[in-house]
């Protein structure tokens, strides 16, 4: 039954792609939830995370990665990129957003756009670093190959038409625990409580003794770290990075966050999985060139019928 195989294959591919989007989307939705900012720089932050991961890999030495050493390298990259993106996101907030806390939402948005441009430019420079992993840095703007640390062997057996590889396993194994952990932080910890309070009403939260600046800082830190994790997973799954990759990744993730209901963590995951699956199915059964149109068409339709997204609550409008 070849068509069954084909369909199963698209499910696997779609879900894996969706999971990666979900990690990025949760970073968007956290920041949006707390300061109502569409953080345009988030996709580009994610891009820099991938460049850091490749640099770390280069520093570890490019060898024949296999078995335990490859997995060790993966863990090191995950930690490094998460830490780097977390701190960077926190820094961007300090420099570009914090001074505008009392300004209009749209000034904040423009500041985020500015930050996005700067990060893209840093990515371009980074590609010019004279390291072997960047091909000597000669063609800074060119896409970079990301070594295939995770093998592409078929876990269902080499003769199976359906491919399910360690790459897919990695995506799931990193994303699911992170999402669970994040939900736990937001719903069960003191920090999470402070975050939700700040999101609802920053002034009241401050009056209650919550250091809202620290809470917002922590949100950026966690959101950035998620972007860092996502960047490593993305790089290991797709094996190419480029300084312009933040645009599409960011747009998909932002769309996912809104589709699910912005500010809602389960919503971001749902939205991301929907987008991943729709992209796969459209590429496979329709025409690739119409995929983007279909994704955004579905988004518009869903929002027309559910104006607060799939899992967004209607009554949350602030007055």
């Amino acid at each position: 039954m070849e068509w069954v195989d084909f369909f199963l294959q698209q499910l696997i591919t779609g879900l894996s792609n969706g999971m990666i989007i979900a990690l990025i989307a949760s970073g968007y939705t956290m920041v949006y939830g707390i300061i109502e900012l569409i953080n345009f720089a988030h996709g580009d932050l994610f891009m820099l995370g991938a460049f850091l991961a490749l640099t770390v890999l280069g520093a570890l030495g490019l060898g024949d990665w296999s078995g335990a050493s490859a997995w060790a390298a993966v863990v090191i990259m995950l930690m490094a990129s998460a830490g780097f993106c977390g701190v960077l996101n926190w820094g961007v907030d300090r420099l570009a957003y914090k001074p505008l806390r009392n300004a209009s939402k749209l000034s904040l948005l423009v500041s985020a756009i500015g930050a996005s441009f700067i990060l893209v430019n840093l990515g371009l420079f980074w590609g010019g670093v004279p390291m072997d992993v960047f091909a000597g840095g000669v063609a800074a703007a060119a896409p970079k190959d990301f070594p295939a640390l995770v093998p592409n062997t078929n876990l269902l057996g080499e003769e199976s038409l359906v491919q399910f590889t360690p790459k897919d396993v990695l995506v799931w194994a990193v994303t699911v625990p992170l999402m669970v952990g994040l939900t736990w932080i937001v719903t069960r910890t003191r920090l999470g409580k402070a975050m939700r309070a700040t999101a609802q009403n920053p002034v009241a939260a401050r009056l209650m003794g919550i250091d809202t600046d620290r809470v917002i800082g922590a949100t950026f830190l966690i959101g950035g770290a998620l972007g860092g994790f996502a960047s490593v997973i993305y790089s290991l799954y797709n094996n190419t990075i480029s300084f312009q990759m933040g645009y599409r990744a960011g747009m998909d993730a932002f769309t996912a966050a809104v589709l699910g209901g912005i500010g809602s963590m389960p919503g971001a995951v749902t939205g991301a999985l929907v987008i991943g699956l729709v992209r796969s199915m459209s590429d496979a059964y329709l025409e690739t060139r119409w995929t983007n149109t279909i994704v955004f068409g579905i988004l518009v339709l869903i929002l027309i019928f559910r104006p607060s997204g799939l899992l967004g609550s209607r009554a949350k409008e602030k007055v």
Binding site: Q10, R279, T291
Partner: peptide, 10 residues
């Protein structure tokens, strides 16, 4: 601008 073409390639 797509991140990968796995579905198309399949």
């Amino acid at each position: 601008k797509a991140s990968n073409y796995k579905s198309l390639c399949q």
